[in-house]
Amino acid sequence: MHARAQAGWVDGERGMTSLGLRRDRSAMAARVARDIPNGSYVNLGIGLPTRIAEHLNPERGVVLHSENGILGMGPPPEPGNADPDLINAGKEPITLMRGGSFFDHALSFSMIRGGHLDICVLGAFQVSIAGDLANWHAGAEDAIPAVGGAMDLAIGARRVFVLTEHLTRAGESKLVEKCTYPLTAAGCVDRIYTDLAVIDVTPEGLVVREIVQGWTLGELCRISRLKLRGNPVEVAP
């Protein structure tokens, strides 16, 4: 099984998927949701992190923040009930929970930069062993740049989680010795959730806490091209 998994990996992501040895995107989002304490104030980044909200039972009292001036963000509206004045940071229509509030951008980023958010969850192009994050610019010099609130969230939230696939579509590790893409912030990431593992950024480097069944630490090191430590718990995908 392991040998086949490795062969599948060499052939690219599709081979892995067919063997089922990875978490799907819903399971990845659900795994992060489990680590968010009840009652936290949380900002979920655009893309996959947004889907964590689907796994947060309202009874847990987690309050979602949106950069564009919302606390208490609720799920998308029923079809036909979208309000163009009520959108999230990804500019998709959303709703407001009971007890939610609106405020201007300066106050919204005071919440972010002033250390008032308990957690933010961001996507990544690369995360280094020192917890450096690159998630706003894929390096191409002729690309149209866009940074949004990523740099503010990365330095401002008390804890920064990264949620991302372990490898790029081309099969390259998103965990790296040193980021080659432009940085969002240095040394900001606390924990990384991938489709294969949960990994903490520590002063001693990356420590694997959980690994998806069927993988060994050695295999994870090999595809990451990194020395990873830890005595990970094996978990179901």
Binding site: H105, F109, V147, D152
Partner: peptide
């Protein structure tokens, strides 16, 4: 290109008569 929080705060600083400010962003 200005990070969103820095953009808001630079505008706020102008409105509040602040000469400049330091931020980690």
């Amino acid at each position: 290109l200005v990070p969103q929080g820095t953009l808001a705060e630079r505008i706020r600083a102008a409105g509040a008569g602040i000469g400049a400010f330091y931020t980690q962003t």
